[in-house]
């Protein structure tokens, strides 16, 4: 019985190892190419979108050979993660409120949750006249300058097709 207990334990672990050896990973980047070989500059055989579940077939240094629904190819390991990425990008401002310079904000739900982790805005009085006060207007102006996804893709294509030289 004594020897058997050990054998059973080892067997269970062995089976566990085999069962879990193949790992599913998720694409974390918004868009990433799939290359035919583990080298940039080789042929691009497909493009994966964020959140796609892939099966890792093989790893080679910083590269992983993955299989998605229909395509198979190499991606940098960096773009893969063990968990499905969050659904939506995090909003930079709590709620839809703007950062009017004279508003003294209450803690919102988002920041209130942050309080448990040590960051909290309630009771913080922005010293608006101080040189250290954030220039929210400039930040807002910057945040309005967003680029459309199509525009970014076209911009990237122009480079990759050699039309930017």
């Amino acid at each position: 019985m004594f020897k058997n207990a050990g054998l059973v334990a080892l067997g269970v672990m062995g089976l566990g190892l085999v069962a879990w050896a193949g790992g599913q990973q998720y694409v974390q980047s918004r868009k990433v190419n799939l290359w035919v070989a583990p080298r940039f500059g080789t042929q691009v055989v497909g493009r994966l979108e964020r959140g796609v579940a892939v099966e890792v077939m093989e790893e080679n240094g910083r590269w992983a050979r993955v299989r998605a629904a229909r395509v198979e190819g190499w991606v940098p390991r960096m773009v893969l993660g063990p968990r499905a990425p969050a659904e939506r990008p995090a909003e930079p401002v709590e709620g839809a409120g703007s950062w009017a310079p004279d508003a003294r904000r209450r803690a919102s739900a988002v920041v209130g949750a942050g309080a448990t982790r040590g960051v909290r805005s309630s009771g913080v009085r922005e010293r608006l006249n101080s040189a250290d006060a954030p220039d929210y207007r400039a930040v807002e102006e910057w945040e309005r300058q967003s680029a459309e996804p199509d525009e970014v893709e076209a911009f990237q294509r122009e480079l990759q097709e050699g039309r930017a030289e």
């Binding site: 909003e91 930079p92 920041v111």
Partner: peptide, 19 residues
């Protein structure tokens, strides 16, 4: 929650840089 805090503080910091 961590991400929300990160964005919030990062925005504050870049606001100071822009000042």
């Amino acid at each position: 929650e961590d991400v929300a805090v990160e964005v919030r503080v990062g925005r504050e910091a870049v606001g100071r840089i822009l000042r």
